[in-house]
Amino acid sequence: MGIHCRYRKGLLTCRADSTPKYVGHMYSRIFQNLGQIVILTFEFAQCLVTRRPQFKEWMRQFHHIGVQSLSITNITALFTGMVLALQAAYALSAFGADVFIGDLVSLSIVRELGPVLTALLVGGRVGAGITAELGTMKATQQLDAMRSMATNPVYRLVVPRLVACIICLPLLTILANFIGIIGGLFIASFELQVDGHFFMSRVMQALSVNDVASGLGKTFFFGYFIGIIACHNGMRVESGAEGVGQATTQTVVSASIVILISDFFLTKLFIMIT
């Protein structure tokens, strides 16, 4: 799309689409993808409500998506909490306000950094994996084989993965929040000589139920976005290895952008609600 090249009589000539044509093509593709995602969501909801759950497959996906993402999300949360404590001490000590390190670390992690960083990491690791798996199945006609045996690939493949994404992301975020605060406590205690009990009491005072709910509420949406984008891109792979590679990249890019954009609107929404 955009640039068309032709090799003729030893010469490679390239012609770019005019800007309006290029923009038109880009927007039509975006709306086409959105339409397909809406249809896939309806099919997912229909299968979830009307078909018997495949608990064994769900458990397998919980393991892939949840358990196997634990190390990457926890390490990131731990060091984010530690860096945040260091930066908070640096900024707050100028005003003699370093007693509020616990407040700043906990609120930043629970309301924003925990959910968003976890979603971005899971989007990269799990989203790419789902797209590559489904894309390879599409390219090797395994999806057609499922259809030819009168079975529904959405029920067999999309439902377990999407359910696992929606359920695992909040759970991973809860753990990441906890570990991020522990990272902050570690730095506050050993590096900044803040009393551990005092740090934790500030954390408990600073955090309200609304803070936790607003942070965790967003992760259900992030989980849905990661799962649906990954499944949609995987099931739409057109060609072989190259197509799978492109779809995988597309998933990571799209999921990251959608998470960051939706975070703004979801934050506004939760602030309005609470």
Binding site: M137, Q141, D144, A145, S148, M149, T151
Partner: peptide, 28 residues
């Protein structure tokens, strides 16, 4: 209903590579 009466053998076999032979055959 047609697909339960008509089987399709794909060019590459299209066996599910995450399943073993038993699971592939048991699938339908």
């Amino acid at each position: 209903p047609i697909r339960t009466r008509v089987s399709y053998l794909f060019q590459g076999g299209a066996l599910f590579d995450s399943m073993n032979v038993y699971q592939n055959l048991a699938y339908p």
